[in-house]
Design a protein around this nucleic acid. Structure first.
Length: 367
RNA sequence: GGGUCGGUGCCCGAGUGGUUAAUGGGGGCGGACUGUAAAUCCGCUGGCUCUGCCUACGUUGGUUCAAAUCCAACCCGACCCA
């Protein structure tokens, strides 16, 4: 078997483990940078590896549009295509059901998106699975319906009904044993629907489970609540992936609830917008005048190339003059920062001191 | 010396008699960003004793109830002719 998930240590509900894939092992909990278009924006694979990232996420919908899965397959698959030798995961396009809600129509059989050039793009569970099989990531995701945070109970009921039906179809269509197909629990902010969705998907016996439908506009309190009410239903022996989450507090609290994998665009997007993640959660806009004559490193304790080499004044200059290197250097730092943060949470679990090591993130957490 | 066009807020540049402290850009200052249609998006950007007042569209004077906008002279710039 190409996939294996081994738990090394638990600390309350939190777990430290190793998720093994055909392209390498992922010490968990782990943070996955997002490389939607088969690139973590502004970072070369070598730079990405330098951040300590093990697994990287790419997107089925975007790669289907450009360059098309056939071209990726012709290049020998996604790993070869983007020259990332480590583990890869493709998201199914389910999030685009949410993010492109003005540009798609939804029915029980699937979704029709309108591409930027106007073309209709039809995604069904079978099509999303076929594309992901062709792309060849180690972990692929079921095509799900991701409803917005403000959805009514009835709308979320429909979404979990479709998500379960679609997961069944993805599972039936999926053929490659060297790819693990994960299911995605939906249910919005309604605990009973989260439980129902989890139970239905667990009955289908997937090798891993994701919590989807968070970070869709609901706010930190509800994210915490959704994670708290969903994780107890997920199988202990399988990896759990909280999709789209990447703030320090949410990462720490979710790890404490037993989440193993995370992804988030935040570190790379903030970097491209000129902001650095520092001090365990602060966001600094490096364009601000206060950094113009700041000759200290961004974070003297950070081992990344950016912090080891350059001053804040230089980063400020690059951002102000819109030099592309500025984006790269901030992305390098931000990704390193979040990868290392989750690594430090893992180490705390191994040391059996998760809550005491990071008290600042757990003060508002109910049991 | 003659002629033509032009001089607008930090910069560029609209506006050619009346909701004009004056459209847009840029720059400046700040904010947002959570499975990426995001190197994007959103504010603010003359002064003050601030529900109002003052100062502003080269300068000065004039016409008018009302002028950045019309008239005159002057100053400055670009180009053309001598």
């Amino acid at each position: 078997m190409s996939f294996n998930f081994t738990l090394l240590k638990t600390c309350g509900a939190a777990r430290a483990g190793v998720f093994s894939t055909p392209h390498g092992d992922i010490p968990t909990p782990a943070f996955m940078p997002v490389g939607t278009q088969a690139t973590v924006k502004t970072l070369s694979p070598a730079q990405l590896a330098g951040t300590g990232a093990t697994m990287v996420l790419a997107n089925t919908y975007h790669l289907h549009l450009h360059p098309g899965e056939d071209i990726v397959a012709q290049c020998g698959g996604l790993h070869q295509f983007m020259q990332w030798p480590g583990p890869l995961l493709t998201d199914s396009g389910g999030y685009q059901v949410f993010s492109l809600d003005q540009l798609r129509t939804l029915d029980d059989d699937g979704v029709t998106f309108r591409a930027p050039n106007g073309d209709p793009i039809r995604f069904t569970p079978e099509e999303a699975t076929r594309i992901q099989n062709a792309l060849g990531a180690d972990v692929i995701m079921c095509f799900d319906e991701c409803p917005p945070a403000k959805s009514s109970y009835e709308a979320v009921q429909t979404a979990i009904r479709r998500t379960t039906a679609w997961a069944t179809r993805c599972q039936a269509y999926h053929q490659r044993s060297d790819q693990a197909l994960f299911a995605i629990v939906q249910g919005g902010i309604y605990p009973d629907l989260r439980e129902q969705s989890a139970r239905e998907l667990i009955a289908l016996d997937f090798p891993g489970y994701a919590i989807g439908g968070v970070s869709v506009g609901e706010g930190a309190d509800l994210i915490r609540q959704v994670v708290a009410t969903t994780t107890p239903f997920l199988p202990v022996e399988k990896p759990r992936y909280l999709m789209g989450i990447g703030t320090y507090r949410e990462l720490a609290q979710s790890v404490a609830r037993g989440i193993d994998l995370f992804d988030c665009v935040l570190p790379t997007r903030l970097a491209r917008h000129g902001a650095a993640l520092v001090n365990g959660g602060e966001r600094w806009n490096l364009k601000n005048a206060q950094f113009r004559r700041d000759y200290t490193p961004l974070d003297a304790t950070c081992p990344c190339y950016t912090c080891q080499t350059f001053t804040r004044a230089y980063l400020c200059h690059l951002i102000r003059t819109q030099e592309v290197l500025g984006l790269t250097l901030l992305a390098l730092h931000n990704v390193t920062e979040l990868v290392r943060f989750v690594q430090s949470l893992r180490q705390a679990i191994l040391d059996d001191r998760l809550l005491s090591a990071f008290p600042q993130y757990f003060e508002q957490m109910d049991s």
